[in-house]
């Protein structure tokens, strides 16, 4: 299915969330991070952080917690042909527990390309900018979502 181009005109509302200690610990433990700055408050403070430090890929969980805030479900992509092609993070300030972040999603680019086995592949880049209470940029995440030309077994 071709990209639903009307989604490119849409803007998505800002969303707010508090960065929680328990969620940081859970994320660190799943990945097997042994660095105690993610799990032990004393260690985090000894290392100069105000609270537990989020692992580098942590903001991933906030992209689409509410479908109204996120372009992804509105792209018209067939979920069976949707791939996460690339993921980029830009780091501006340490992300620690207790911060109240505001995020906003936007589609920053789209392109179509002929697939290797024929059919069109669609690439969409969604950027999420996260700012703190002072309005300062904390992190930027960019995900490239691909709709492949055909389901894997039919290719």
């Amino acid at each position: 299915m071709p990209l639903d181009k009307s989604v490119l005109e849409r803007t998505f509302p800002e969303f707010e969330f508090r960065v929680e200690r328990g969620k940081i610990r859970e994320y660190a433990l799943v990945l097997g991070l042994t660095d105690p700055v993610h799990t032990d408050l004393e260690a985090a403070k000894a290392a100069g952080f105000d609270d537990l430090l989020a692992p580098p890929t942590f903001v991933r969980q906030f992209w689409h917690e509410n479908p109204g805030n996120d372009p992804m479900p509105h792209l018209g992509y067939d979920p069976k042909r949707r791939l996460h092609g690339e993921q980029e993070f830009e780091y501006h300030k340490p992300l620690v527990a207790g911060m109240n972040l505001k995020g906003r999603n936007a589609i920053v680019s789209t392109r179509e390309k002929e697939g290797r086995r024929g059919g069109m592949m669609t690439f969409v880049v969604i950027e999420t900018r996260f700012v703190d209470e002072a309005g300062e940029l904390v992190q930027v995440a960019r995900r490239t979502l691909i709709e492949t030309a055909a389901p894997p077994k039919e290719a």
Binding site: L33, L53, E86
Partner: peptide, 16 residues
């Protein structure tokens, strides 16, 4: 992160 420091990153780009 455990090699270079968890707050040392400027950017990280992953291609699947």
């Amino acid at each position: 992160s455990e090699w270079l420091g968890p707050d040392s990153f400027k950017n990280l780009k992953i291609r699947f």
